[in-house]
Computed example of a mutant assay.
Amino acid sequence: MASNDVQKVVPFEGSKLSKKEQIAHMFDDIAGRYDFLNHFMSLGVDVQWRKKALKLLAPLQPKTLLDVATGTGDVAIMAHHMLKPEKITGIDISEGMLTLGREKVAKAGLDGVITLQQGDSETISFPDATFDAITAAFGVRNFENLEKGLAEMCRVLKPGGKAVILEFSNPTKTPVKQLYNFYFRYITPLIGKWIARSQAAYSYLPESVKAFPQGQAMCDILHKVGFQAVTCKTLTFGICSIYCATR
């Protein structure tokens, strides 16, 4: 799957807005119901996926961490508990998601450690080699320009630093593949319509996963933009993948 294929998949077909603008509007719209739906639709397994991804950073003992497409800050907060960095910065283009994330950070008493700020993941506003580690959970699939966003992540990572990317993938084995496709294509949009009141957002989800470069294709792109020692590990019958790479 080519990296530009995923750029063509947008939440609102026929809209004159760019994909980036559509994504921001979509997440602003569903922000209040996003966390609940994540846990509900994955039966809570998404929490374990995040933990497994963060465990890969434990040997590095990062002091500074950037969480790209941080959303409501779940990974940033979990990273604090698991890795104890001195400073965690989360960036996202959706102010609606960030507002909820800041409330969660404040409630946890982590304002001094975690900063969530609006930012474009494809033009990250930090100097080269700023962070020891970078995380991105279920966000790179939404980049307007995947290679540009990944290159930016590589740029702001310190030499020897590590990036961990968690993303949905398509199972390939029967019968998981058939069950997954049915659930994602028919059930997910209905849940989105009933609970999130946004069928468009949860119709976009399976289409964006289908178009996203996976496995070796994604590893090749990570190599292309400058990462080294790239690995891919599938989780839960291939429903999710963890990509790990160093600069």
Rank of each mutant, 00 (worst) to 15 (best):
175 P>Y: 12
206 P>I: 06
121 S>V: 13
122 E>K: 12
221 I>K: 00
159 P>V: 10
237 F>Y: 13
128 D>F: 05
231 T>E: 00
155 R>N: 01
111 D>L: 11
135 T>D: 02
94 S>K: 05
130 T>Y: 01
202 Y>I: 13
152 E>M: 09
178 Q>I: 10
211 A>M: 03
124 I>E: 06
230 V>K: 05
236 T>V: 05
181 N>R: 05
222 L>N: 04
199 Q>E: 14
100 L>F: 08
148 K>W: 06
219 C>G: 07
92 D>N: 12
144 E>W: 14
103 E>S: 12
113 V>K: 12
110 L>T: 02
105 V>F: 02
237 F>S: 13
131 F>I: 14
94 S>Q: 08
149 G>H: 01
220 D>E: 15
209 V>T: 02
98 L>H: 09
120 D>G: 10
134 I>T: 11
140 V>G: 00
173 K>H: 04
224 K>F: 11
157 L>S: 00
115 T>L: 09
126 F>C: 07
211 A>K: 01
159 P>E: 03
161 G>L: 00
116 L>P: 15
197 R>G: 15
106 A>R: 12
166 L>T: 01
115 T>Q: 15
111 D>W: 11
137 A>F: 08
104 K>I: 04
238 G>C: 01
191 I>P: 03
105 V>R: 06
101 G>D: 03
184 F>Q: 15
95 E>M: 13
94 S>H: 04
224 K>V: 12
160 G>C: 01
217 A>F: 01
229 A>D: 14
193 K>W: 15
147 E>R: 15
232 C>F: 07
146 L>E: 01
192 G>H: 06
97 M>I: 12
184 F>L: 11
217 A>Q: 12
164 V>R: 00
208 S>A: 12
127 P>R: 11
98 L>I: 11
124 I>L: 14
110 L>C: 11
233 K>A: 10
178 Q>A: 10
207 E>Q: 15
128 D>N: 15
134 I>N: 05
159 P>W: 03
113 V>A: 07
129 A>N: 13
129 A>E: 13
106 A>W: 08
102 R>Y: 09
240 C>S: 09
160 G>L: 02
191 I>H: 09
207 E>P: 11
98 L>M: 08
108 A>G: 02
127 P>Q: 07
148 K>T: 13
165 I>A: 02
113 V>Y: 09
168 F>H: 00
152 E>H: 09
182 F>G: 09
195 I>S: 04
111 D>N: 15
208 S>N: 07
113 V>S: 14
197 R>F: 10
224 K>W: 12
183 Y>P: 08
237 F>I: 03
174 T>S: 13
202 Y>D: 09
162 K>V: 06
100 L>C: 07
129 A>Y: 08
222 L>K: 04
209 V>H: 06
192 G>W: 08
194 W>Q: 11
167 E>N: 05
178 Q>L: 15
202 Y>S: 06
240 C>M: 10
116 L>K: 14
100 L>T: 04
149 G>F: 03
136 A>C: 15
180 Y>I: 04
201 A>F: 12
189 P>C: 05
230 V>E: 05
103 E>I: 15
163 A>Y: 03
208 S>T: 08
216 Q>H: 15
132 D>H: 06
173 K>W: 02
174 T>C: 12
182 F>I: 07
93 I>E: 09
110 L>A: 01
164 V>Y: 01
233 K>T: 13
148 K>D: 12
109 G>F: 15
204 Y>S: 01
188 T>I: 10
221 I>F: 04
